[in-house]
Design a protein around this nucleic acid. Sequence first.
DNA 1: CTGAAAGCGCTTACAG
DNA 2: CTGAAAGCGCTTACAG
Lengths: 340, 340
Amino acid sequence: MATIKELAAYTGLSPSTVSIVLGGKAQQRKIPENTQRRVQEAAQALGYRPNISARRLRDPEAKESMVVAVFWAEDFRAPMMVRFLRGLRRAIQAQGGGCEVLIHPYTCGRLREERSLISLSMFNAAVICNASAEDLAWLEQAKPLLPIVLYNRRSDSYCTVNVDDARIGALPAEVFSAHRRRRAAVLTADEVFYGMRVRTDRFLARCGELGLAVGPVLRQENSMRGGCEGALALCALPGDERPDCLFCASDALALGALRGFHQRGLCLPQALELIAVGNGEREAEEYAWPSLAVVSVPIEEMAVECFYLLRRLVRGEVRPPFSRPMEVRYLPGESCPESP
Amino acid sequence: MATIKELAAYTGLSPSTVSIVLGGKAQQRKIPENTQRRVQEAAQALGYRPNISARRLRDPEAKESMVVAVFWAEDFRAPMMVRFLRGLRRAIQAQGGGCEVLIHPYTCGRLREERSLISLSMFNAAVICNASAEDLAWLEQAKPLLPIVLYNRRSDSYCTVNVDDARIGALPAEVFSAHRRRRAAVLTADEVFYGMRVRTDRFLARCGELGLAVGPVLRQENSMRGGCEGALALCALPGDERPDCLFCASDALALGALRGFHQRGLCLPQALELIAVGNGEREAEEYAWPSLAVVSVPIEEMAVECFYLLRRLVRGEVRPPFSRPMEVRYLPGESCPESP
DNA sequence: CTGAAAGCGCTTACAG
DNA sequence: CTGAAAGCGCTTACAG
């Protein structure tokens, strides 16, 4: 990678002149066309690429601004990143900017391979989302030296922003019970983090407490396809094993399940009430047919809190571990209406 | 913002020692606990925040890596960013990494306010997505000095990656005509860029060429809500004005329309065939009920091409303007099956 | 155990 | 019109 110094040597000009031309200030500094051309040709010939860090180091405006990395799993959870970034953006704008967002997609379970978390020279702080148990274990031991907030995970040594997973599981059970449903089923996916298990377990336990029978707990790929297959499997059950209410672990599963139920002519909510964990776009839930009843995960608000927590961490105003709990809300929908 | 030098002055230590402690190398350099504490306390007291640019400037690994900014509109198009980032990530991984992605949400029409495009000290190159006519006009005149690729826009002075908007409009007309449909309608939204108008105009023109009557051209908010309202409006038309085929300008509009048609008990594809511009997640199209027939916009592949073009631009291997055309594909679905 | 010095690549007064 | 010098904030040999 050529530097300005090298271009200077190559052209026989000084670094100052080269810098002026490359910075687009030739006009105001009255550099003749000819000199400009020499510089441009040299840049082309030597493959010059400006060093952004060096430029930034000199830029007084840039000094105030900090860089926050968002680690997000590059799997079925990718679409949820939109909601998170929306919240993050909101928080940054609310403080008048001054924060750049660096996206770091990563493979779940391989957070340890992300050198940037160790090198300390890529960003000021990081929000780590979607961490697996392995990733968390590594974090507990590696202890990166920069401010970190974990999104929707528990930790004894980091700052975290959390939802109450037990509540997410209990709520649907209570609604189903109030609606006098008799047999509940669960449509979920591989438990990529501990909270998912808590949701399912707590749903089942609460059903038990309320006298609801619990039908099958189906585990499918966390996608619409998985949801659709799950629904078809439920419809294939013999009549007495068929549930009349269903807890879906994600919007994707639920939306796919709607298709499966349509295919089989099963009528919601009459034959089956459905409540999903609302982790997708609200509009997709509302304009589904039937619209989805959800226990809504406030992803945008959680992103805002992640940012605030990070800021307090950077300023030394909070010391980890610290957990910021967030409320989940139950939003009825046609798949499980308020007054059935 | 305190610097290491200031911490050194404050503690009476040298900048070297402070740096060693702050870099987490106290152990290996045998700095006594006590000195460490002094440094940490000073950092706390003075509100020290490391300057990432300065660190990066010294990091030999970081030197190779470049920073690409993605400008994306923070409006109804936000969800499409997921597909774009997926493609970008794929391209970066294919070349073995060495590229950071900076997300720059912006307000459409206000690109001119993005100082980072002028300052040159924030990133090496940029992909500008969703630019409005105003934004494009500004770009043509302001001519930022860094490598820029425009996503899905036309330009006389920039490199661009494009789909054939005329083809996107013509294709559905041809399918409807082959299916012997008689009256076509359009459900679209405000034309936030020129290509959208081309799609609609070309659809209408092609219908005319093929002898298809054209019913109303409805303009709604580009969202599921808008789509739903559009569908309800279509159903409210008197019988002889009601279309039997519909071209939707986006997946969001189409998915919302499906709900509207369900509400009115309109049967797809019998009563009405529907083809959408496929700009959303493929899975949402396939698992809709009925599944959507789409003219698919290859967003991921376009992102890959944006990256390649940017790389060639950075290396001086291509000179703007240059347009990379991308193929669109027609994917039948239940809303407009191959053999009706 | 700690410090003085050099240098990463760049830009900007300042001087000529 | 162009160049020599200083300095942005940091880390790392090197010396003691």
